[in-house]
Write a protein that binds this DNA or RNA. Structure first.
Lengths: 151, 151
DNA sequence: GTAAGTGCAAAGCCTTTGCAAGAGG
DNA sequence: CCTCTTGCAAAGGCTTTGCACTTAC
């Protein structure tokens, strides 16, 4: 839970430095965001936040999540299907995703070898990497890990 | 240009097998699609097709490109920025993309090592891969390959 | 008090769809 | 002919924006 405190103070810093304000809505959205599963959608965030603060509007969710991305406490992910999802941005880590197209489960992984290959390839083409995205889509073959198949 | 003929006959087969029709619009869109740069957008296709057939509507472009994807002669790519692009689908090949965020240039590459690692990772998590997507974003460091920097 | 933030509704994109008219097999 | 297609315009999603009101500092 140390990471959570880090994210909270990171946001505080960002707000202070940029002359922005700590509002009730931002606090609630942050709490809800950190408590929920990783890879939440804006709809899910809205529903959860409205349980605490019913008047909260979708526009505020959009604006707040954009703020969180700018403050580097959240990452935006657009997987196939066009739904945008957000995940907490933990300290300098980078990971990629495996997505089960049956149950929708999203696994995260890190792979040093792939990262290195990417660097080599980028160098070969004369590019300096700023970001990358690797998504593997597949179907669970072990029932135990696939919610869709009756667990 | 052998691939082009392959794609044309692949489409013919698909139409025949499914009881669909060869229309002037489909022929024009296919020609334009194959002549244009890889990774075209629907707007670009519309403009180009309208030079040959002014009445052609955007809905037809959408429906036709969806048809091409179903017939496996085109692949749909959604890079960052939310613009959907299409590229001709050549025979069983798979490649990934390097994208320069300055000039917009898109490079294609294939990497056996990365493909293998992906298989291993999927197996580790109990998934059977159906598809994957690897996009590396960066900035050109060699002026010669970056249109944005004055070539 | 003043600038920033919020909620609502309206407007913007891109994409899909319903429908009457048109064209291919 | 009979079905598939087309073009247009309308409708759908998701996301952004304008504006008057409210709140934090």
């Amino acid at each position: 839970m140390v990471e959570i405190l880090q994210l909270i103070s990171k946001l505080q810093d960002y707000l202070r430095v940029n002359g922005l304000k700590t509002t009730k809505q931002r606090q609630i959205i942050l709490e809800v965001f950190l408590e929920m599963d990783r890879h939440v959608t804006l709809d899910e965030l809205l529903l959860a936040a409205q349980k605490v603060y019913p008047n909260l509007g979708m526009a505020t969710i959009y604006r707040t999540m954009r703020l969180f991305v700018e403050a580097s406490i959240a990452h935006e992910r657009k997987f196939d299907g066009g739904i945008t999802r957000y995940e907490p941005a933990n300290e300098g880590e980078h990971h990629d995703h495996l997505i089960c197209t049956l149950c929708g489960h999203i696994f995260e992984f890190e792979d040093e070898i792939i990262e290195e290959r990417q660097e080599s390839i980028a160098t070969l083409y004369g590019l300096s990497i700023t970001d990358h995205k690797l998504e593997i889509y597949g179907t669970c073959i072990t029932p135990d890990s696939c919610e869709f198949r009756g667990n």
